[in-house]
């Protein structure tokens, strides 16, 4: 068994789990954060994307034990109370989802993309950066629009950046 200590969305947690436990399994089954989804389970679809120490990773392809000690932010950690994160708000405003299954991963990757491109984002860059996140409903168009709009909103400085 592995003793795993993490800070998840600002909350310290300590769990003893089998060594082979994937991070996504710990998040969903051990601490009940089911917003992070398992889509393909082969690290292609990106529905399980979370932030580890500020960087987007696929939580279905990381052992919880591997990242013990890290700060993890999931989709549940973005909103401030009833106020949605600008990325979440932009997905709503621009209809960046249909069934919503890929959305948590899209939003976590969207925030990561914006954080890595302080110079600003164009459509081509957003599409390229979304290479590891698959959506089977929207055709991506409104997802790209939402991330572009959120990037402007986040860089305007009127709203808080994501908790990292």
């Amino acid at each position: 068994m592995a003793d795993v200590k993490l800070t998840v969305n600002g909350r310290k947690i300590a769990k003893t789990v089998p060594d082979r436990t994937l991070l996504v399994t710990l998040l969903r089954d051990e601490i009940g954060l089911t917003g992070t989804h398992v889509g393909c389970d082969t690290s292609q679809c990106g529905a399980c994307t979370v932030h580890i120490d500020g960087n987007a990773v696929k939580s279905c392809t990381v052992l919880a034990a591997q990242v013990s000690g890290a700060e993890v932010v999931t989709i549940e950690g973005l909103a401030k109370g009833d106020t949605l994160h600008p990325m979440q708000e932009a997905f709503r405003t621009h209809h960046g989802l249909q069934c919503g299954f890929c959305t948590p991963g899209m939003i976590m990757m969207g925030v990561d993309i914006v954080n890595r491109h302080p110079e600003g984002l164009d459509e081509e860059t957003i599409r390229k950066e979304l290479e590891g996140n698959i959506c089977r409903c929207t055709g991506y168009h409104n997802i790209v629009k939402a991330i572009g709009a959120a990037a402007e909103e986040m860089s305007s400085g009127t709203t808080q950046m994501a908790a990292e």
Binding site: G46, V57, K58, T61, V62, M109, G132, N133
Partner: peptide, 9 residues
């Protein structure tokens, strides 16, 4: 290589 999330690991 891979995609941004894969490159972070």
């Amino acid at each position: 290589i891979g995609d941004p999330a894969v490159r972070n690991m």
